[in-house]
Design a protein around this nucleic acid. Sequence first.
DNA 1: GCGATCAGGT
DNA 2: CACACCTGATCGC
Length: 666
Amino acid sequence: MSCFEGQMAEYPTISIDRFDRENLRARAYFLSHCHKDHMKGLRAPTLKRRLECSLKVYLYCSPVTKELLLTSPRYRFWEKRIISIEIETPTQISLVDEASGEVFISGQQWDRLVHGRLQIGKRRSCPNGASALRGQEECLHGILELVRSWITRSPYHVVWLSCKAAYGYEYLFTNLSEEFGVQVHVNKLDMFRNMPDILHHLTTDRDTQIHACRHPKAEEYFQWNKLPCGVTSKNRIPLHTISIKPSTMWFGERARKTNVIVRTGESSYRACFSFHSSYSEIKDFLSYIYPVNVYPNVIPLGTTMGKVQEILKPLCRSSQSTEPKYKPLGKLKRARTIHLDSEEDDDSDLFDDPLPVPLRHKIPNQQTLHPEVFPTTAISQNQPEKQTESTGCFRAESTPTSLWADFIDCAESNSESEESEIPASAQGDMGPVPQLQKADGEVPQWEVFFKRSADLTDDCLENLPSSTEAGGSQSPKLFSDSSDGESTHISSQTSSQSTHISEQGSQGWDSQSDTVLLSSQERNGGMTSSSRRVYRPGINDNTLAPQMEQNVLCPKDTYSDLKSRDQDVSIGSSAGETTALSSGKHVPQEKRPLTLSSSTDSQSSSDFEIPATPEAELPTREHLQYFYEKLATGERIVVEKRKSSLHSRATTKKPIPRDNSQNPNR
DNA sequence: GCGATCAGGT
DNA sequence: CACACCTGATCGC
C-alpha cells in the first residue's frame, strides 16, 4: 500500500495522485494516471466544493488521462478544470494565486519522477534499460505465442484475458489484434472513442476469439467454460477456453528469471506483466540519475521502511558519504558513457554540460533564482509547516537522517487506506488507460499519442548491437521450464536454435505440454510480416501501455495443439538466446528500433515529435539546466521571485498553457 | 442515500 | 508478494 500521501516537501502547495485530507488545500493537482488508487478523493464532494470556490485550481495530467477521466460522469465536474500536459514536454505552470512566485514543472520531470519508469527514449542512457524493455517485449511475445497456439486450433478455441485493472493492457490488446486480425472483446470501449489506434482493435461484439471482457463472477464462469460476457458456445458448438492472467512478476520471481508464461491450471496461464518498474529497472534508473536520496512509497507488508531504504541507499549518492556531495551532473554522465553524448536525445544532453554545478543551493544569495518554489508566506498561508512535517510526504533533503525520519513518518501515515473510488463500469465510459494517460478536454490529436512502429521488424531485434543487451541475464524466459510444484510451465531453453516441445512441465492437467522454443532463425523464417511486428501504438503515457520496443515474434507453429501434448510453441528467450537474437548484425539504419539514433526512436515519439504546448513558452536551455541540476541534487526546484520574473519572464507567465491547437475542442 | 472504512476476495 | 481492483458489511451523516 502506498504511503505517499500526495505531497512532496519541496512542493507543499501541490498534490500528486492524492486528493483527500491535506491535499484539499493544494493549489494545483496532478494525476499521473487513471488507476483508482491514484485517484483517492478526486471525486469527493469536499474537493468538488473546493473546486467551486477556488477557480484557479486546476488538475494537470496527460491528454490521455484527461480523456479517460472525463469519460466517467462522476469526474465530469473536472472538465473545465483539467489541463493536459504532453509527456516529455517541459511545461511551465504558473500558480497564479501566488502573489510572489511561480513554479515550473517540466513534463519530463513529472513523467520520470512520478511514474518512475524509464522511458524508452532514455534507454540508451541507461545501461540495462534495454533489458527491462526486452522483458516486457518477451512478455508480450509469450502471450502472443500462447494465444496463437490456441486460437489457431479452431474457431471455437478462444482466449480470455483476465485483466484486473481497468486500464493498462491496451498495448496487449492492440498487439494481439494486430497479430491475429481479431478484435478483442471488451465490455466498453467508449473511453477510447478518441483513440482510434486502440479503438480499432477492440469490439463489443462477443463473437471473437479473444476476450478481455470482465464480470464480477468471471472466475466462476470460467470454471464452467463460460466467458465473462456469458458466451459459452458458437454456432451451438461449445467453446474451448483458456485464460491468461497478466499478473505481476515480483522480485523473487524475476530474480529467478522466471519464465513469462506459467501454466497454473488445466486451462489457465499466468503471464508476467507489470505496470510498475521492476527492481532491476529501478536500479538502472537510479544508477542513471544517481539521486541524493530515494524515498520508497510502498513498503511491503513483511518488511520495513528501514529495510527498503537499506536496499535503495547504496544506489544513492547519500550512501557515498555522510555529507552529501553534489557532483556536477555533466561529469556523472560523461563518466558513464561518453558515446552517448553524440547520440543522445534532447534532454539527455541536459546533463552533458560539463559545467560544474556550484553548490548554489547551499548559498541562497548566490542564486539567481530563489530556491524556494513558493514564497514563505504562501506556504504559511496554505500549508502550515506542521502539516508538511507530519504528512509523511516525500522529501528530497540531502541528509540521511532526515530521510530516515521521513520514512518513519511515511510508514505511519499509511493508516489511510487507499481505495478505489470508481467502479470499473463507471470508468467504462471513459476509462483511463494506465499507460496512456492524458486527454485534453479538447479532442487530442491521437497521432501524438499513438505511433505505430511499422518499420520495426524482428530483424531489427536480431541486429541490435550487443551493447544494448547488456542486461540479458535479466530477461525472463518466455516459458517456464521448471515446475514449482504448483504450476506447469512452458519451458524455454537457452538454446535459441531449437524448437521443441517440452513435456517437462506438464504434470497434471491433461498433460498438455506446453511449449516451444523459437530460435532466432525460426523467427526469421516463416513469419508473416505481420507476425513479426509488435504493434505498438506510440503511447507515451505510462498509463496506457507498457512500451514495447521491438518485435520479436516467432511463430512457428501456428497451429500447435496445446492439448495434444505434442507440443506447443514455446518461445525461448533465455539470456543467451536473447543476446544472440538481439545482438545480431547489420540492421538497416532505418530499421533499428532501439539503438537507433534519436531520429528513429520508435518508442518515444514524444521525445522528439510532440510539439511544445502552444502558448506555453518553452523553457530555455538555461532554465532546464537549472531544473535538472536541482533535480539531481535533490534541491527544491526553482523559485523565482515575482519581481525578477516580471522582468525576465513576464512573457512566460502565461498561466496555464493550453494546447488548443493540438486538442481542438470537441 | 451517500460516503468512508474495513474485511475479504480474485 | 503485491497490485488493482471488486464485493459486502458496517458506520456516520
